[in-house]
């Protein structure tokens, strides 16, 4: 038997490796996380069906995003609410933005654990807001109605929370580095 080719260069494994990037990319194009999840599944089926050919690892992210892009555009009629947010020019600009970061390490792989801890330790009020927006996928308008606030104020609060989380992640990473 001939020596096996490196597993890491097969399409299916590259998909597993780049899944988070693809999910985020799809999320840019699709306003609802459930839709993004559906599209990601469809991209996975498309990539994993047929022969599991070897591909150049460096070319895979762009190719996989191309698959995702086509599937998103195929389904865009079903998301009438967001049609104005999904034109070819915007999709191309997003692809360009992602292609510029392909060569960089996905910093979130290292940051994920720290982020989880930071979310875990958020004050309950902040966590509630984050959960309503990102787990329950409520818009700022819907949250504002529930909390007797304005959508603008909710968005400002969300931005503040996101920045706080990023600062928390950086602090934790620096602390971990100092102890290692």
């Amino acid at each position: 038997m001939s020596s096996p080719e490196p597993v890491l260069e097969s399409r299916s494994l590259l998909f597993v490796r780049h899944k988070e990037m693809l999910k985020a990319f799809i999320r840019v194009l699709v306003p609802h996380p459930n839709d993004a999840e559906d599209i990601l599944q469809e991209v996975g089926v498309c990539i994993l069906s047929g022969r599991d050919e070897r591909v150049e690892p460096d070319l895979f992210p762009s190719w996989a995003r191309g698959v995702a892009r086509n599937i998103v555009l195929h389904h865009r009629r079903t998301w009438r609410r967001s049609q104005n947010m999904l034109n070819y020019r915007f999709v191309d600009l997003v692809e360009m933005a992602y292609s510029r970061t392909d060569a960089e390490d996905d910093g979130w792989k290292q940051r994920r654990v720290a982020l989880e801890t930071c979310i875990e330790r958020m004050p309950p009020k902040d966590k509630t807001l984050l959960t309503m927006r990102y787990a329950s996928a409520l818009t700022s308008e819907a949250i504002a109605k529930q909390q007797g606030s304005s959508p603008g104020a909710i968005r400002v609060a969300l931005l503040r929370l996101r920045r706080g989380l990023l600062r928390c992640v950086e602090r934790r990473l620096m602390r971990a580095e100092a102890h290692s």
């Binding site: 985020a24 510029r100 990102y134």
Partner: peptide
């Protein structure tokens, strides 16, 4: 190009938060 970087970072964080929650 900096705006593209901000967009990528923004959605990476969004996607991570959604996954964790």
């Amino acid at each position: 190009a900096t705006v593209g970087r901000l967009l990528v970072d923004h959605y990476s964080l969004t996607s991570e938060i959604e996954t964790i929650l």
